[in-house]
Design a protein around this nucleic acid. Sequence first.
DNA 1: GGTGAGCTTCTTTAC
DNA 2: GAAGCTCACC
Length: 659
Amino acid sequence: MLNPQQRAAVDTTEGPVLVLAGAGSGKTRVITEKIAHLIATGRVAAKHIAAITFTNKAAKEMRERVAKRIKGDAAEGLTVCTFHSMGLKILQIEHEAAGLRRGFSVFDADDSAAQIRDLLPKGADRDTLESVKALISRAKNEGLDPEGAAAAAQSPREREAADIYGHYQRRLSAFNAVDFDDLIRLPLKLLEENADLAGGWRERLRYLLVDEYQDTNGAQYRLLKALAGPKANFTCVGDDDQSIYAWRGADPENIMRLGRDFPQLRVITLEQNYRCARRILRAANAVIANNPHEHPKQLWSEHDDGPPIRVVECDNNEQEAERVAAEIAFQQERDKRPWHDFAILFRGNHQSKPLEKALQMLRVPYHLSGGTAFLDRGEVKDAMAWLRLIANPDDDAAFLRAVGAPKREIGQTTLAKLSELAGQLHLSLGRAAERTDVVSRLASRPGAALDGFTRLVHELRSQAGRLTAADLYRQVIEHSGLLPALRAEHGEGPAYQRRRENLEELANWLDGERASPGDLVAQLSLLSHSDRDNPGNTVRLMSLHAAKGLEFHAVFMIGAEDGLLPHQASLDEGRLEEERRLMYVGMTRAKRLLQISHSRRARRYGELVKLEPSRFLAELPDAEVHRIGDNSEQDQSEKQVRAETHMARIAALLGGDAG
DNA sequence: GGTGAGCTTCTTTAC
DNA sequence: GAAGCTCACC
């Protein structure tokens, strides 16, 4: 059953709708119900509806919810994707108008950084690189091209960055490549500057639903407006208290902007929380009340109070990890709950290491979802570089990676010479390497090696059109020599096996996909490890950012220390409120049990440092909290039970593990 | 041109 | 404390 506000949000199918939805107020439900409603009433066919999310995890979650809600093939053709994958799709279809050739590459953050570093004066320090990178990204997130950025520049530093932005963009264009930010900026440019093209897309996507709307940046907002067109049939769902992406250009102002740009906007507020026990809700409300609010929400719940929030002090972060792991093992055993009811949330991905160790010790099944861990693996990047180079002969970044994976007697000297010759001929590295007049001017041994490489890539490329992406990938693995090189480097040991498995997993990802190899590789670069595999019944480990939009029976937040949560960098940059929202997001993921822990000491850069509890802990109302110290004033009998369960578990594991 | 010992640096968060 | 990088050697 939907409550009246949810009902209104679902039933208002005409024109622009903004749903201000507090944490746990059923906003994903509103989106899935609205999709179902649009389809069921025949108002819009599934293929004309697009639901847009911010993370792949959220898109996946949404797809599953829709599949459950809409049986059969009624949902056929529905688009559920991130802003970036939608941008990619538009660019792949409209590549000509965007000045790109088929098979263009998507540069990841590393590729982009490498290019920008290369464009900076020699010897430029890291800070300069970071600042230029950030300025270019910010300009792109506002939809500015290099000329626009130059015009908007306020300082010499910004003018310089705008200048490098221009060079960087010319280079991307020469490589037939785009970066992540371009996946929004370029489609936006196309739609804003080409009325026919925009009309086509509006015809195709007649109804838009945007989740986590508070996280849109300027370019995404304009892309939304351009896609919606004058009919403005869209629903934006968001919560200003959960805006946690300002650091990557998100502009919560977009919430207010909507009302100004669309006077007919229907605003609906959802204030009933269906998720959290009352104590959790009261505590979370108390924390977020410390942020200034233009329109304070009054979240309420019909649930019971639930148990107190546990605030646990630990001696150090390894002990913290052990205690959390033991507590989860204990509760799972006692309550016979599935493992996936438990989540451990942290500020930084590096905090997962001690947790993994402790969980493995207790044989607790867990799933780490975070970052782009999988695609960041060296061997996976190598294989991806081969695929990219096959799809896009002008992708110099891919060329440089593939030519050295595995090592084939081509070193810096040869590559520098090749690069010089390619520059003179205005050719990409890959195309230059195909020319005999270029190769003949290289030293004979490396020249021959390069020639062998070029022939191999050429041969694979000639097959690419006939093969599925998965089959092409198998050819790459067979002929590139990647696997033998890994075996030579690591022997047959676990290090080799793990890398081999990663390469096999990439094959599994590609299997059954219908898109062309080139298109698929581009899509792949937007995925992260956890997006494809099914975590099953396991404890979930993820960053607070990744947890947004999810909910769990029991949530363990770790590392609640000043400097981590709130993070020092955010404090330095005056973003305390965003950190508080992060705390709020973490707390409101818990349905019933919430434990927040912190350590007095932790290992940082190999050294033990003293830590202070997070200032946010002081904002928790005493009445809702049970504070548990190191020398635990915990009930002794409870401690006894825990110890016994723990021992029994270890005994069982030892028994079961023998042999 | 490839390799390994020793040096530096590093931690937000994500597409 | 580990990963990544530089420089000296094969």
